[in-house]
Simulated assay, not measured.
Amino acid sequence: MTTPSPALRGWLDEALRRIEADVNRSADTHLLRLPIPSVPGVTLYLKDESTHPTGSLKHRLARSLFLYALCNGWVREGTTVIEASSGSTAVSEAYFAQLLDLPFVAVMPRGTSPAKIAQIEFYGGRCHMVERAADVCAEAQRLAEACNGHFMDQFTYAERATDWRGNNNITQSIFEQMAQEPHPIPDWIVCGAGTGGTSATMGRYVRYRRLPTRVCVADPEHSAFFEGFRDGNPQATVPRGSGIEGIGRPTVEPSFQPGVIDRMIRVPDVASIAAVWVLRDRLGRACGGSTGTNLVGAIDLIADMRRRGRQGSIATLICDPGDRYRGTYFNRDWLSAAGMDIGPWMERIDGFFRTGAWTGDGLATAER
């Protein structure tokens, strides 16, 4: 076995110190309470991951992936780091690559929002575009081999790199922040799936802590995760990429762990986008499309609790800020060109907040 040289270990020690110092400079994200006047017995909480330094939930993942790669000896001084990402993970990884003075390349589908591309470039990263979302991983691997770099591969390593037992993972943080709330143990935690790492962390944590909380994944249309979960088929595929950036995949990724998920809800893209328009009015600021997917999933669960006369709480995530989507989800010309009429879904979602009326029409549900 080759012993690492003092110079190599010295660089690694400094890299880990820089990441730890960055963590120490950062505070935890807020847990917001969103009132639902029509359902006074159920409280909805939003874990605001948009306040991380890089503006999204993926900041936690990027930090974990870098620590994992560094401690495994995959990333060394001068290593070019390459990631396959639709945007937010790449933004966060570009941040950490810059922190460690490492070159970074993001392989992403053409059509990724310009705001995300600009952020990656702001942190010194380079964007490499492909035509089809299904090709990002293969192209990232090819580039890594060509330059003797490291393909970070969030889709494989997300569930391995995150410490699901604790160490301030997102689920532990939610439970600590809810400790003094009227219903401190949520009935459900709702999240989307891009890699599957967040849902794996949540599902494992509640089982490890022997908590009754159940985990629901809200999945956009044009994603293979729902079919894979419903049919028990890890080889499930869909023919096109997701219309909601950051979540949904055309294949079932290795980090997706269906055995720790209790329910999945498939949400139409038009409903996800309508939901963030409604949320902007009720929260006072804009959030990204994946937050809308989460919100629709949470509403469906709250409506079920209301029908059963159950009181309690549900927690979900604000994944990233809406300013990244001014030219798309919050642009009526873009919506019109995409053939999306969000009006009926906006009325339906806002109507739930006002009256509690809700049906599952347009949604698909699968449960273990």
Rank of each mutant, 00 (worst) to 15 (best):
M1D: 08
T2Y: 13
A7V: 15
L16I: 12
L16M: 11
R17Q: 12
E20I: 04
E20H: 08
D22P: 03
V23I: 15
T29K: 14
H30S: 06
L31G: 02
L32Y: 04
L32D: 04
L34P: 04
I36Y: 03
G41F: 01
V42D: 00
T43A: 08
L44N: 00
K47M: 09
D48R: 03
H52C: 13
H59V: 08
A62Q: 13
L67H: 03
Y68D: 14
A69L: 08
L70H: 03
G73T: 15
E77L: 09
T79A: 09
S86L: 14
T89N: 09
Y95R: 09
L99G: 10
D101I: 04
F104Q: 09
V105Y: 08
P109V: 13
A115W: 03
Q119H: 13
H128N: 10
M129W: 06
C137E: 14
A144C: 12
C147Q: 13
D153F: 15
F155P: 13
E159N: 14
T162M: 15
S173T: 15
H183G: 01
I185L: 11
P186I: 01
D187M: 00
W188Y: 09
G194I: 11
S199V: 07
G203K: 09
V206W: 01
D219F: 01
F226L: 11
T237L: 07
V238P: 11
P239I: 05
G243A: 05
G243M: 07
I244L: 01
P250K: 02
P250A: 09
T251C: 13
E253Y: 05
S255C: 07
G259V: 03
I265F: 00
V267R: 04
P268R: 13
I273N: 00
A274P: 11
V278W: 04
R280K: 15
G284T: 09
T293I: 05
G297L: 01
G297W: 03
A298I: 02
I302P: 01
R308K: 10
R310S: 04
G312K: 00
R324E: 06
T328W: 05
Y329K: 03
Y329E: 02
S336L: 05
A337W: 06
A338I: 02
A338H: 05
M340R: 12
W345N: 05
W345P: 00
W345V: 02
M346R: 12
E347N: 15
D350L: 04
D350P: 02
G351H: 06
R354S: 11
T355A: 07
D361A: 15
G362H: 12
G362M: 15
A364M: 12
T365N: 00
A366C: 04
E367A: 04
E367M: 08
